[in-house]
Design a protein around this nucleic acid. Structure first.
Lengths: 223, 223
DNA sequence: CGAGAAAGATACAGAACGGTCTGTAGCTTT
DNA sequence: AAAGCTACAGACCGTTCTGTATCTTTCTCG
């Protein structure tokens, strides 16, 4: 059967526009500070359209977090997969973050901000955030293991804390340079756990394919 | 002159009650999610009383941040000043944070959360946050210098990032154990910058009085 | 006691909130 | 041409928001 779908062109769906507008406004102004009217105005859709697609504002928030999380993970993994060795990939983390921090549209981590501005006994947003962070940490932990770290998961946990700290500090200070400070700390931790990087003398670290294959696997967070 | 103040007893002023209620509700539920009515109900005051004391909700928010910041700094400096040597004080940072994280009322850093839930082009809240963090980092930097760190300010910056990361991660996960991971990372960084702590063999580090005197100085953040 | 300030209670104003409703324009499909 | 679907437009619902105005109570202190 021939597909009657009208090709592609710039046929953006209302859903995409709503998600895009909501993401932008939630990040820039905060979730609670963003009204439905502002979202539909930015998206150029009707309010009815929004409520035909999403059950409620909370439903839209969750959809934004999931999509934004998946998008961020794809960008992040892509940004650190270009080097060849696991150690070099790990060393690419904070330069990548620095680039992110330098964007005009940088507004910190939408997960962290969402948890911070909602009631602390709320579990749904925290669970989504934990899934997001766990996915990233798992990948870093596997890289750390492949790089020969003595306690890969502990090292990944520490790097994750440095990442979160840098993300928050960059949001507050608007200074991408915090990524350098975090990167130097990470390098010191990595040197301690794996031995120095030896940037010129190539010290080949075997990559058994586990971490490399994982880089291309599904970015969804399974429950 | 005899003080005509009616002793003490539980004579709480409306201002104190309002500040207390606002602090608790802002931290627990978020600033934008907390209405004036909820604050006056929790404080047991009239709405008119609030607006007689504070010009606006934003004014109340700033007052809460300043008071809460001063209180936190006093607690934090007190929690790490009990050890004698600078290095031991630095090693006390993350155990202190762990105790904080374990409190039922722990809700993360109100400064970070406030910045996250407000428009990102807002400068006032970010400035208050930077002042707060700068004060803490300056103290840590002086301790690091007294402990013989090669680049005390850089080390303090890195420790600050670990602190922020731990604060955020503890808010999300509700697991005080993140302080242990952060503390291990800090210990590794400190060992690298100052040499190992040598916990038993006392390696006396001279303290020229600068950092010790500072511990008792004004906790206010000067503009 | 009695004057006056402080703070409570309450109602209100005007705007904004999340969310629903009615109606219609524009496009396929048949 | 008729029918149907999607999405936009915008009024509207009840609620909640920040902030104010008015009145009463309570307490202090001379």
């Amino acid at each position: 059967m021939t597909d009657p779908m009208p090709q592609d062109a710039e046929k953006t769906t209302p859903r995409d526009r709503l998600m895009d507008a909501a993401t932008r406004l939630f990040c820039k102004n905060g979730i609670n500070a963003t009204g439905i009217d502002a979202i539909v105005a930015e998206a150029g859709t009707a309010k009815t359209t929004l409520y035909k697609i999403f059950k409620s504002k909370g439903d839209l928030v969750e959809a934004v977090l999931e999509t934004e999380g998946k998008s961020w993970r794809a960008w992040f993994l892509g940004a650190i997969e270009q080097p060849t060795t696991p150690r070099e990939k790990l060393d690419a983390i904070f330069p990548a973050l620095k680039k992110w921090f330098g964007e005009d549209s940088y507004t910190g981590c939408v997960f962290i901000n969402a948890v911070g501005e909602h009631p602390k006994d709320e579990t749904r947003l925290r669970d989504l955030t934990i899934q997001h962070k766990t996915f990233v940490l798992k990948h870093i932990g596997e890289l750390a293991g492949a790089a020969g770290a003595v306690r890969p998961d502990a090292l990944a946990h520490q790097i994750g804390l440095l990442m979160d700290g840098a993300i928050v500090a960059a949001m507050v200070t608007r200074d991408p340079g915090v990524a350098d400070a975090a990167g130097q700390a990470a390098t010191a931790l990595l040197d301690g756990a794996c031995g120095p990087a030896k940037p010129k003398r190539k010290r080949t670290v075997v990559l058994q394919g586990g971490a490399a294959a994982l880089a291309k696997e599904d970015l969804s967070v399974v429950e």
